[in-house]
Design a protein around this nucleic acid. Structure first.
Lengths: 344, 344
DNA sequence: CGATCTTGTACTATCGTTTGTACACCGTCG
DNA sequence: CGACGGTGTACAAACGATAGTACAAGATCG
């Protein structure tokens, strides 16, 4: 549009364009949006005149003022542990995209997995009258979810699940099982699991799925070889170091529930004189784009992050329309690369 | 607060708490916020009664309605190429943090470096009456910035700079020079630069700084060894492959203007039988947490991302208060690690 | 040709909050 | 003891948009 008025600070309002077009504010409003069922629609001629005036003056609807009257903010809020986490950022991209398609805007906030921050951020979003929340940092701690439910706030979970709340997640149990199957295939017996933060269902379910399949095959994992820690490179390195300090020969295979942590683990293994892909098999999770491009490409489990975000929005919109959707589990897919394509 | 009313969909309004406290809506408003200069303030007793009622009913101010009257949305908008880029996500964390400290909320949108998306996203934000914009995807294409300036929209740039607009960026020229200095120190002569996207000032200034220092030392870089491409692992791999296809012996040192691209380049070098840190020196940029934890720790230039975001907000707030701040260049810092701690 | 219907327009109230101003009440002082 | 200043409160009008409804003009029918 080649429009735009002068550089005045005041925005063009519906009243301005009504005056310009020589009609009432009502008609202007109905000409531009309106047509709400029983409402009298303006004539085609009037509508055209209004639209022309709107274009000439560079009108744009004040979302806030309209929302006040209609009681619809068309805003969705999302809570994430931190946006600098690639996986959550990608999920948010899916959220933004799908919400936009449905005419909604989104806001997002970092909570750093801190229950107080979660609560505070959610409260701020509700003060802004978001119509629903997408929770990407669900955790058993804090009790926020139960509170939201009691207050009747529409929300869905994404990435992590918890309780019986509707959630859009990857099938982390299945992913864990697939990794176990792959390592059993290659004949490994001594394995370690870097299990992530205990409060996140992602890590714990990937671990549970792995252990389930592993023990079903008659093998065991010593408790000191299932280590928890942060989902980042430094956390993975430390967890790996702790495993290497345990008594007995080192594992021949390691499952890390997060790719960044897996990369940190690579460093620790190298420092211990073990070469990934030759002395030890390594499998990560999430298949971030980086993993395939590493000098030693990392085996990983692809999670459909964008689709997870889109699905979460669809679930939430369903709830907003009065539905009671169930959870959605999206299938993961193991990609075997050089880091684990070997036997013990 | 142990408050919260029932699970009714309607929120508690100022009118409710006024009725509850037995005062007018005016007094309720003034008791809770008010004290605006000449305004008559309610008595301490009334104020206490109102506050008590508000707490009991679980009142929270409707930001939108209030903003409508006061003409202040207390909202800042930020445009980024994509939030799944670690660097921009971290900058946004700084933005969110500093804005929150000043009582502002933020919204963010992905533009994928597409001029049409940039414009559309900015327009949506302005419809939501953001008070100012933080542009993290500035580029000479599209002319959005000039338009915004003409329309009197307050904005600042971050991460990338452009034109004479106020910006909070790292000193990319200095960073590039530092890398060149380091590689000159180690005695390298055959060097390549993976320069990132041509439209981003970050990459082009890092490259320019590097070449400036390099040529000042009497050395040259053949044009076909300065290669542009995306700032991610796959882009870095492809760019590196193109360099390796050029005639002549391979470079003994490579400067990549982005860490993720540098990791992709590592893969390409390995495939070509060159070991980083032994056969070839590699230096990245941004010093993402991963870089120090890689099996071969990557030399990189630390950029103060959080601080960049915070600074951008401070500049914008300054503008909103009528100031005309200049740009801020934050100092980078080279961290030499195993990937480049060697001579040719 | 008058009554009814259709169609298009404008008036008015409203969303929840803030703010200018009118007003009532108190004590104080001349 | 009446006028006056100060103080606290409530009324009413906004902010910009929308929805219900009243009303006027033209079209249609018996």
């Amino acid at each position: 549009m080649p429009t735009t008025s002068g550089g005045s600070p005041r925005r063009v309002t519906l009243r301005d364009i009504a005056r310009e077009a020589g009609v009432s504010v009502t008609s202007a409003s109905r000409a531009l949006h309106g047509v709400t069922g029983s409402a009298r629609a303006p004539s085609a001629e009037t509508a055209a005149r209004v639209r022309e005036a709107a274009a000439r003056l560079g009108y744009s609807r004040d979302q806030l003022a309209g929302g006040l009257r209609t009681r619809r903010s068309r805003l969705l809020g999302m809570l994430v542990p931190r946006l600098s986490d690639y996986v959550l950022a990608t999920i948010y991209e899916g959220v933004e995209e799908e919400a936009g398609r449905a005419g909604y805007r989104t806001v997002v906030a970092n909570t750093h997995d801190d229950p107080d921050e979660q609560r505070a951020r959610a409260e701020v979003m509700l003060d802004h009258r978001v119509e629903g929340l997408i929770i990407g940092d669900a955790s058993p701690r804090g009790g926020l979810l139960a509170d939201l439910e009691r207050r009747g706030v529409p929300f869905v979970l994404v990435s992590r699940r918890g309780g019986a709340f509707p959630a859009a997640t990857g099938d982390d149990l299945a992913g864990g099982r697939a990794v176990a199957g792959h390592l059993l295939d290659r004949g490994h017996e001594r394995v370690a699991v870097l299990a992530g933060e205990a409060y996140a269902s992602t890590g714990s379910e990937r671990t549970a799925g792995f252990l389930e399949r592993w023990t079903a095959a008659g093998r065991t994992v010593p408790p000191d070889r299932v280590v928890h820690g942060p989902f980042d490179a430094a956390g993975g390195r430390r967890a790996m170091e702790r495993v290497l300090e345990t008594p007995g020969p080192p594992p021949t295979a390691v499952f890390v529930v997060n790719d960044f942590a897996a990369i940190g683990a690579m460093g620790a293994l190298r420092d211990a004189g073990l070469q990934v892909g030759r002395d030890v098999a390594l499998v990560g999770y999430n298949d971030v784009p980086l993993s395939a491009e590493l000098p030693i490409p990392l085996s990983s489990v692809t999670t459909p992050n964008l689709e997870m975000g889109r699905t979460a929005v669809r679930l939430l919109l369903d709830i907003l329309e009065g539905g009671r959707p169930g959870s959605v589990l999206l299938p993961p897919r193991l990609r075997v690369r050089a880091s684990s394509d070997l036997g013990p």
